[in-house]
């Protein structure tokens, strides 16, 4: 199975799905959002605590597949401590990655000019979410990792920065 699962189901994803670090509720969340996928019945709820314009803590309740659960848990970890603006920027980078074509990996021989044109230049890193990038080769599963971001969008819908 390892050979079958290797590229998509990174060990970190399976570990997260099995033992999420940020699952649960917050007693008094400032923001809440929910994402639902009616095709498969998956659901993610996010509880978010704010300090000013910064996200101080996120907890999620996810009923979903390994990819969805891992994506929610990694979102919670990556965005804790971020400003709302940064959180949206991480989401934009994640979305851009999911639709990215199979571009050749950045290599050291690429010129400075090309780097200036890199649309991801200046966008925040994906950090702990990096293992999820393999999903872009599995179109049918992209919705699974996007679901927590649908919930985030709903939670942040009325936050003005």
């Amino acid at each position: 199975m390892n050979s079958l699962a290797q590229d998509l189901y990174d060990r970190q994803i399976v570990e997260r799905a099995r033992n999420p670090l940020h699952a649960g509720d917050l007693p008094e969340p400032d923001l809440q959002g929910e994402g639902r996928n009616p095709l498969c019945g998956d659901r993610t709820r996010l509880d978010i605590a704010l300090q000013g314009h910064h996200i101080s803590q996120i907890r999620h309740r996810t009923r979903g597949c390994a990819l969805c659960t891992a994506a929610a848990d990694m979102l919670a970890e990556r965005l804790s401590g971020c400003s709302v603006e940064e959180a949206r920027a991480v989401g934009a980078r994640f979305s851009a990655m999911l639709v990215a074509q199979d571009a050749p990996a950045q290599t050291i021989v690429q010129g400075a000019e090309e780097q200036r044109n890199d649309p991801l230049e200046g966008m925040p890193s994906l950090g702990v979410m990096e293992p999820l990038t393999a999903v872009r080769f599995h179109k049918a599963r992209i919705r699974c990792v996007e679901l927590p971001w649908v919930a985030l969008k709903e939670a942040l819908a009325h936050v003005r920065v």
Binding site: M1, L4, A5, L8, Y9, C40, D42, G64, C65, A66, L67, C68, H138, A140, R141, C144
Partner: peptide, 10 residues
């Protein structure tokens, strides 16, 4: 403990 979508993909 295994979601149908993960089963289907594998």
């Amino acid at each position: 403990d295994v979601h149908p979508h993960d089963i289907a993909t594998l």
